[in-house]
Amino acid sequence: MRVMVFVKATDDSEQGLPPADEMTEMFEAMGKFNEELVNAGVMVAGDGLKPSSFGKRIHFDGPNRTVIDGPFAEARELVAGYWIWEVKDMDEAVAWAKRCPNPMRGPSDLEIRPFYEMEDFGEAATPEIVAHEQALRDRIGGE
């Protein structure tokens, strides 16, 4: 299964990069962890994100779209980085996540979210619904 692992933002990460020496230390620890992930065939992708002050939000309300400039409040609800892992199950994802060095200076969170897979719609979706959904996708994705 494929999961996305979010590194949740903190007040610190929203301020930008840490001082150089701290960053070097963090890069080393994180580099080692990433290498373990690669050698185990688990890591598919991953990157860090700039603070939300560099970001923009597009707010939808009916036909209206409003663009809101960052920074955004509530650091804990923001994302500072992510990985995509391929693992056998959530237990394995959790076991790997626990090995991650603390990505932040203070207390911080990783959040693991599995991707939807076709089987997830299985029981709920009748063949007709799936066919319709696929036809729709085909049209959206069509040349």
């Binding site: 290498e35 690669v38 050698n39 185990a40 065939g41 688990v42 391929e86």
Partner: peptide, 14 residues
Amino acid sequence: CAEAQRLARILAGL
């Protein structure tokens, strides 16, 4: 396929 991909990734990592 997933097992083979994992093996291929391990080998390419090593």
